[in-house]
Nucleic acid binder design. Structure first.
Lengths: 350, 350
DNA sequence: TAGCGTTATGCTCAATTTGAGCATAGTTAT
DNA sequence: ATAACTATGCTCAAATTGAGCATAACGCTA
């Protein structure tokens, strides 16, 4: 019993995606490639046409950028992770350090041809920024250029007041009955912290999905017939559901930040405490209180002095530290996020 | 460029697995089915033989139990989640409430025939316990019967002292060089809290994987040629890597417990505070301090009085509460775990 | 019916953690 | 020299957490 319909391989295609993250100074970046693979193309007829023909009309407008994608080669790689490392290296030259499975995306409609289901297992990868090159013209793009409302380091992003809040208000009041209006308002409150509700930096995916539903992000055009015009101020669009994947990655990373010392994966061997703080801020999207940040880091003994001194700080020289890898052993659950500093508010108020 | 080898569908089979959790009184349970599908059978020759022939020799020993498994039907279900809900209902009659994607397992060797890769997307489902019936003889099995070392509610589980610690010691000293001995000791310390290192209730997967590697769990037999004899005191074996999936689920759930109010998914509409505490303890595997637990729950306003009173408590009657669903809206990140109470220690010491 | 076992519930208190800010120390640029 | 800037030490109040005392209210049994 229970054996009916087991072999479901018909019409399922499986691939791997990676959100590769690096931080340059204060700018968090992700690796993107131009013109993701044809099989992922939104236009079904285009896909059919291109199924066999490798060469493509180069004068045609190139598709939107996307995150790196690679096949799962059942024969070649022992584990999914190894497979991903292999093709990522082949495609971009990058040797990834930290790698973690993110989510498996497989809703129908991800890719247009409904009969054929496309499954992709997405990973989050952290690396120090390196030169990239290879097929697909990989390059580092600022993470927040895709999700501009997520960066609160200089106060609340303008796009909120200018675009998002008005659109949300319209969306709320455009709901049919009263009951649905209440539900819509509630969702908007939670996701974007309307009326007194505090902004929750971790609800990245909620926010993206709400904007998608409201029709504010460009990708929405493809799947829902809303009149609302997509707007580039609301972030660069990406291929398919890649922006959703990228949002998922940011949410996961922000969550992890507070209980695992992941920030160090993005830093060189030795660094100043401010540099560390800037990386954490870049990812969490908000400013932190400097003295308390140091206290946290030093009390938890996440770092140790190298004895070296960094002089090009722009002020008093700073000690250089290195990550104490032992903490991965000792206390398995410490991270480096804490309360907001004042800077963001100040920057906003004056 | 970059389009080579995209269509990797050859030899990949995709299915969905669910770890369905319920709590009866103080016993956390998961739903298991007998004799998981043939395609997942460990023995390659058996699989080949059974590929087409549905009927099987019923006198042959039945395979080990496993968690429910179902195909991904590309045509029928819009999302993976809906698909899972559908076949789970068909197979067991259960209507799942909370459902969350856990992990996608796809290492080669999960299933014997190496040429054919088997991918499964595992989900965690929470439900109130209900009668089950259907194909595959589903039934509720105590979760800790598969992972006995995880239940510390009555003090450190015996199996640690009796089996695990000695085996770990042997494993450590049996390592070739000194360096590898140190690494082994370190791993054992982190996972099982040897020498002063505290036991970390969340490292469920670390522990399972270490036991697997050491050859202590029965499933290890199939993949590694160790002499160590598998031992049923170390938990009931499951089919394939299902015990790993179950360990992953426990780890995820324990983690979630502390920052999301998931425990309520397992409780009836109204409940006493002790009942709630018992559920949390059942999942986290440790005793909690009663007064502080109430304080936490009440201060965070996770519950509200129903006005009713439960009299069959065995002592003074208790007020009945219900979950305040609004908290899902208000503060998105509260849970109900805290420090250990004394009971576990006491139970152990006397 | 008094006493015991059992669970419920209120309250206290010290230790620790967290949030915020003051003050001083070294550098470089003007 | 002084302004601007970053580094670093230290304080202090508020909030949270860990532990335990005390009392209430029920069923059962001697």
């Amino acid at each position: 019993m229970g054996s009916a319909g087991i072999r479901a391989e018909v019409g399922i295609t499986v691939g791997l995606n990676a959100v590769v993250v690096a931080v340059t100074g204060e700018v968090p970046r992700i690796l993107t490639v131009q013109r993701p693979l044809e099989v992922e193309n939104l236009d079904p007829s285009a896909r059919k046409a291109n199924d066999k023909s490798q060469p493509r009309d180069e004068t045609a407008p190139v598709g939107p950028e996307g995150i790196p994608f690679g096949p799962l080669d059942p024969g070649a790689d022992r584990t999914l992770e190894l497979g991903l490392r292999r093709w990522l290296h082949e495609q971009t030259g990058i040797e990834v350090g930290y790698l973690e499975q993110l989510y498996t995306f497989g809703d129908r409609g991800r890719v247009a041809p409904v009969e054929n289901r496309f499954l992709s297992v997405a990973y989050l990868a952290l690396t120090r920024e390196v030169e990239v090159s290879g097929s697909g013209a990989p390059h580092w793009a600022p993470w927040y250029s895709f999700l501009p409302w997520e960066d609160w380091r200089d106060g609340p992003p303008e796009v909120l007041d200018r675009k998002i809040f008005p659109a949300l208000a319209a969306w709320i009041s455009s709901s049919g009955d009263n009951r649905s209006a209440i539900l819509r308002r509630e969702r908007a409150q939670i996701a974007f912290g309307l009326d007194n509700t505090p902004w929750n930096r971790n609800r990245v995916l909620d926010r993206y999905e709400l904007l998608f539903e409201v029709g504010l992000v460009a990708e929405a055009k493809a799947s829902s017939p809303l009149e609302t015009q997509p707007d580039l101020a609301l972030g660069r669009p990406m291929a398919l559901d890649h922006r959703r994947i990228v949002a998922t990655a940011l949410e996961r990373l922000r969550g992890k930040l507070s209980y695992r010392p992941v920030a160090f994966e993005l830093l060189p061997e030795s660094f100043t405490l401010l540099r560390l703080q800037r990386v954490v801020e870049a990812l969490s999207g908000e400013r932190l209180h400097k003295q308390n940040f140091r206290r946290l880091v030093e009390q938890n003994r996440l770092v140790e002095r190298t004895g070296e001194i960094e002089v090009k700080t722009g002020g008093r020289p700073a000690e250089l530290f290195r990550f104490r890898r032992e903490v991965l052993r000792e206390r398995p659950a410490i991270g480096v996020v804490m309360h907001r500093g004042r800077l963001a508010q100040e920057a906003h108020n004056g």
